[in-house]
């Protein structure tokens, strides 16, 4: 199949569909919800959307430096690979729930995994 991962997965509408499911799973998980708890849910959703746009291979302005800066505060509050793994699990469950094909899911999870060192500031 031709086209970028982002195009094949369905572009921005796919991201929008995923954000609602993904952010709800993350907020409902007591092992990680405190990292995402905020009084400004719209701002938090926009951050989740930017993150999903990136792991869906979409056009974005995020790079490793931004990911590091965005998560530095969380790392100092104890964010570690267990939490990273939990978030990745919710991402995978979201993609399954949306019926995303296995090969595309694997690509997305590959991009997500590649961000671990930047997210955890290692």
């Amino acid at each position: 199949m031709s086209g970028s991962l982002y195009e094949r997965i369905g572009g921005e509408p796919a991201v929008d569909a995923a954000v609602d499911l993904f952010y709800r799973k993350v907020l409902s998980d007591p092992s990680i919800s405190h990292f995402f708890d905020t009084t400004d849910m719209d701002a938090q959703r926009n951050k989740q959307k930017a993150f999903l746009t990136m792991v869906f291979g979409g056009p974005n302005a995020y790079d490793g430096k931004d990911l590091r800066a965005a998560h530095a505060g969380l790392v100092s509050r104890g964010l570690n690979e267990t939490h990273f793994g939990a978030v990745a699990g919710h991402l995978q469950a979201t993609l399954q729930e949306l019926g995303v094909a296995e090969d595309l899911t694997a690509e997305v999870m590959g991009i997500a995994a590649s961000t671990q060192d930047d997210v955890l500031n290692r």
């Binding site: 921005e12 991201v15 926009n46 951050k47 959307k49 930017a50 746009t53 979409g58 056009p59 974005n60 302005a61 995020y62 931004d66």
Partner: peptide, 10 residues
């Protein structure tokens, strides 16, 4: 650039 990414870009 997506609108959200554009919004977040410095």
């Amino acid at each position: 650039m997506s609108s959200v990414a554009a919004e977040l870009a410095p």
